[in-house]
Simulated assay, not measured.
Amino acid sequence: MRFSRRHSLLVALVLCASATVAARPTAAASDRGGAPGPSAEEGISARVARLFEEAAVATQRYEAGRQAAEAQRAKTVRLEKLLTKERKQIAVLNADLGRIARAQYREGGGVPYTAQMLFAEDPEELMRGQRAAWQADLAVNNAVTKSRRAETRLAADEARAATAWRALEEWKAGLSGIKKAIEQKLEVAQWTLQGQADEAVAAGACRGAVRMDQPDGEPSSAWVAPVATYELSAGYGSGGERWASRHTGQDFAVPIGTPVRAVGAGRVVKVSCGGAFGIEIVVKHADGYFSQYAHLAAVTVDQGDRVGPGQWIGQSGTTGNSTGPHLHFEVRVTPELGSGVDPVPWLRKHGVTL
């Protein structure tokens, strides 16, 4: 019986789990996010943006751990099926050994050698019989030894696999705890940011631009969606109790503090923080159209600034006439309300499909 296939599979399984466990994170390392901690002067806007990045990294690591655990579980199921089959094979081998031993006894293997010499008629026949018996004994002993070694190796490999599996589960649980802690910090920071925004709107005085580090990567001339990750909610022209007639833009459902991007190159012509739109930004583009970003929690540009595609110009919120966190995005032929066009086909003409 051959055990090489099972053994190689199990060794690969244990090594895979061990390699995953070796990369186990610590709460302190994850909480740092690979970057220096916030200073006393760090604004809440920058803290929210940083926590978003940390939450994204933690989520990716958690998903990687979850996928590794699922793969480990699938391998364990396959291994258990293989082990069950091999246990049956070992049982068959043991039964065969019993039959061989019984047959050997019936054929004289259990008769003492001295008695066989006294009753033998032909010395050569005696020697042949003894040689055959000796070879049979040797084959049986070898088979028994192999069977016992296989069973011992099987037990040891099962124990190693079980240890690796438990370690992987602990690692995944640790990732889940780190992810939850970051999300809790993010939620507190988000509503602190929103509270500051609501105060500014109530006072009718914008706090001014909060400069933030821009996303990594080389500047591009390609147009982009106003937020990187989103779910579309209310669309252009849809009805609703909170609008005088029809919805004038496209809403993007995103959490408070999500970085809002300029969809294309242009100049900021308006930054305001009162009225139905709450905190808003309006950008004029080279084709004569204007893009509006409303219900913000913070702005990172001032009126008159030049912006490029993908540049962070603010953070989403729920200021003004808003029922929940989202970005209200409009495209207009003038900077004022009432001149809007459907943003979806306008973005599509610029190479952006929502």
Score class of each variant (00 low, 15 high):
M1N: 14
F3G: 02
S4M: 08
S4D: 15
V11L: 13
V11T: 14
A12D: 13
L15Y: 10
L15T: 15
A17Y: 02
T20M: 00
A22Y: 14
A35D: 01
P36A: 15
V48W: 03
E53F: 07
Y62P: 01
Q67Y: 12
Q72A: 10
V77Y: 04
L79C: 05
T84H: 12
K88P: 00
I90E: 06
R99T: 11
V111K: 03
Y113T: 02
Q116P: 01
A120C: 15
D122S: 09
D122Y: 02
P123E: 05
R128G: 00
A143R: 14
T145D: 12
K146V: 14
R149G: 03
E151R: 11
A162F: 02
T163W: 00
T163Y: 01
A164S: 11
A167H: 02
E169K: 10
K172W: 05
G177Q: 09
I178L: 13
A181Y: 01
I182S: 06
I182R: 08
E183S: 10
L193C: 09
A202F: 06
A205G: 07
C206K: 00
R207T: 13
G208T: 05
G208Y: 06
R211S: 10
P219I: 06
S221R: 12
W223T: 03
V224R: 06
V224K: 11
A228G: 11
S233W: 13
A234F: 15
G240P: 11
H247C: 09
H247T: 11
F252V: 08
A253N: 12
V254Q: 09
T258I: 10
T258C: 10
P259V: 12
S272L: 07
G275P: 14
A276H: 12
I281M: 03
V282E: 00
K284Y: 04
G288H: 09
L296C: 08
V299M: 08
V301P: 03
V301I: 12
D302W: 01
Q303Y: 00
G304M: 06
V307C: 02
P309S: 07
G310L: 04
T318W: 09
T323K: 09
H326N: 04
H328I: 12
H328E: 13
E330C: 10
E330W: 14
V331W: 05
V333C: 07
V333W: 10
P343I: 04
V344Q: 12
T353M: 10
